[in-house]
């Protein structure tokens, strides 16, 4: 035991462990964890029966349904386009590639409210391409399709940026070996490359999903927020409760949303941990 202890002390030759540890934990607690715990503590003021009643109210269930469904669809579409975009950016050269690569990050840099009003205007029946779609009978703004469109916009950088570095590092040897052994190009992709990038795709999918379920600013303009059409998202309902000073309702819904986020975060970390273990085994 004693030797183990001494060794762990010896590895810390760089100064500042206690200081940086103290500052990090103190700031994290004060600015993030304690405020979040307040939400938790406040939701415990409700009895389980009350909590259940609030959570299973019709508009709340409908909001969770909408948020989860739309985020799943958007995350799936983003996974597909994320792989295509990452592939094109890594494997091919074409004019304007660097601009495309830079634009991928736009949804991170553009304020959500700005994205929200713009997408809402674009996809309404007076905007472009909204007028085109409404011409063929598809309304996008103020429907669930609109919510999906906004979530695709918000989530696309997550999937592209998750897959891109893995593709860049992917050893060309496996691909070549597969060719030489006579595998078709499609087979090479699905049997050799796809399993390698699958954890990255799942990570991107998870991040896009997590972001989508809690999204507020970019969604609330294009969604129309109608209970009848099922276009209220969870964040909107929380905000609505806050505005009416229904703090109990707001915290109860927020707690469920928090739990969903944490589970997703946990699963994403698990995937990444397994991936890094696989790489280190090699």
């Amino acid at each position: 035991m004693a030797t183990v202890k001494r060794r762990s002390k010896q590895t810390r030759v760089i100064p500042g462990f206690q200081l940086t540890f103290g500052i990090t934990v103190a700031m994290l607690s004060l600015l993030v964890l304690i405020p979040l715990l307040s939400v938790l503590v406040n939701s415990f003021r409700l009895s389980p029966a009350e909590f259940w009643k609030l959570i299973t109210a019709k508009n709340v269930l409908s909001a969770f349904g909408t948020s989860i469904l739309c985020s799943l669809i958007a995350a799936f579409i983003n996974a597909v386009f994320g792989v295509i975009l990452a592939w094109v950016l890594v494997k091919y050269d074409f004019p304007g590639k660097r601009i495309v690569d830079g634009l991928i990050e736009l949804p991170f840099a553009l304020p959500t409210a700005v994205a929200g009003i713009t997408l809402s205007k674009m996809f309404s029946d007076t905007g472009f391409p909204g007028s085109f779609f409404s011409g063929i009978g598809i309304n996008i703004s103020y429907t669930r399709i609109g919510i999906v469109a906004a979530l695709i916009f918000i989530g696309i950088p997550f999937t592209v940026r998750a897959v891109q570095p893995v593709l860049e590092k992917l050893d060309g040897q496996y691909e070549e070996a597969a060719y030489i052994l006579g595998a078709s190009r499609r087979k090479t992709f699905f049997k050799v490359i796809f399993p390698e990038i699958l954890p990255a795709i799942l990570t991107g999918f998870g991040l896009s999903l997590a972001r989508g379920i809690g999204e507020y600013g970019s969604v609330i303009y294009i969604s129309g927020n109608s209970l009848k059409d099922g276009t209220q998202v969870v964040s909107y309902v929380i905000m609505q409760k806050l505005e009416r000073l229904d703090y109990a309702d707001a915290t109860a819904i927020a707690l469920v949303l928090l739990i969903i986020s944490f589970v997703l975060l946990f699963v994403i970390n698990l995937i990444q941990l397994r991936r890094s273990k696989r790489i280190s085994v090699r």
Binding site: P35, T112, I213, G214, S235, I238, S261, L265
Partner: peptide, 13 residues
């Protein structure tokens, strides 16, 4: 990874 609305709520709470 959490909703910004929850961040606001946390400080109100």
């Amino acid at each position: 990874s959490i909703s910004p609305v929850i961040a606001g709520l946390a400080f109100i709470m």
